[in-house]
Design a protein around this nucleic acid. Structure first.
Length: 272
DNA sequence: CTCCAGGCTTACG
DNA sequence: CGTAAGCATGGA
């Protein structure tokens, strides 16, 4: 158990904004990261951590080294987003594990947050390793390689199940170099991720933002599409099929190099 | 019953 | 090129 002194950090906002699916608040926030359990709570500016993971890992996971003054100054472009930054101040992006993040967002396709979280929990229980009673690691690619479709059915993934099994096999036998994306640019990484069956623009952007820390990524889902339409609707003249790409490109130019952070504050507002 | 959910793939003009 | 149906599942 140890304390970390923070500023511009809000644990509740960070963990309940929909970017992660496995954290639960039961008094303490509890989650499994890199195969280890983290229990966390915040008292004022103090972040209290109970975990076998060291402080450096926690700092990295919650991006506590981000310069929020600089980021806020950069994305605070108008009177639309300014109140959201104030309302959700301290909301941070998280550095998730790329494999867990990729699979999670492949499961997100045309799905609800509730169902996504449920399917991920079932996958961990069925194919992960039990760390302590009731807590499971996220299954490694190898663990999913030999899973049959009929065994996967209990995870309630529907049409997404074969996509998960396929990429598990590709990562496991080095046919797809997921961790190599760390060294690629945003554009290159996006192109690479979109080669995966079940990964298009939006899911690639989520993985690039939430796992690979490409802050110029701006995922546009149904929620972001709605709030962007509401705030900046006059900017988008294109056809319906290309509107989401158009919105992402606009956001990159408008909010700048940290537009991924802007996306989270906008998303949070449309959730509530 | 229909419609939608942190979309993507495939088929058809 | 561009658009539209189809996709499993669960909740409103």
């Amino acid at each position: 158990m140890y304390h970390i002194n923070t500023n511009d950090f809000d644990l509740d906002h960070t963990l309940s904004c929909g970017q992660v699916f496995r954290w639960e608040k039961k008094g303490w926030w509890t989650g499994v990261v890199n195969g280890a359990i983290i229990r966390a709570k915040q008292e004022g500016s103090e972040l209290i951590i109970d975990s076998s993971l060291d402080e450096k890992t926690i700092l990295d996971y919650f991006r506590l080294d981000d310069d929020m003054d600089k980021i806020y100054a950069s994305i605070n472009r108008d009177e639309k987003i300014a109140p959201l930054i104030k309302k959700y101040i301290g909301l941070r992006l998280i550095r998730q594990d790329p494999w867990e993040c990729l699979v999670s967002y492949i499961c997100s396709s045309n799905n609800t947050i509730r169902n996504i979280a449920n399917s991920i929990r079932l996958m961990c229980e069925c194919f992960g390793r039990e760390i302590e009673s009731g807590y499971y690691s996220f299954p490694e690619p190898q663990a999913l390689t030999h899973v049959e479709f009929c065994d996967m059915e209990q995870c309630r993934l529907g049409f997404r199940a074969p996509r998960v099994l396929k990429i598990a096999s590709q990562v496991s036998n080095c046919e797809f170099d997921l961790y190599g994306i760390t060294d690629l640019s945003y554009r290159e990484g996006r192109e690479e991720l979109m080669k995966i069956d079940g990964v298009g623009h939006k899911i690639a952007d989520c993985v690039l933002l939430f796992a690979f820390g490409k802050l110029e990524s701006f995922p546009v889902d149904t929620h972001i599409e709605q709030i962007m339409e509401r705030f900046y609707g006059d900017k988008f003249k294109g056809s319906k099929s290309k509107k989401r790409e158009e919105m992402a490109e606009f956001a990159r130019g408008y909010f700048g190099e940290y537009c991924g952070y802007a996306q989270e504050y906008l998303y949070m507002e449309d959730l509530s």
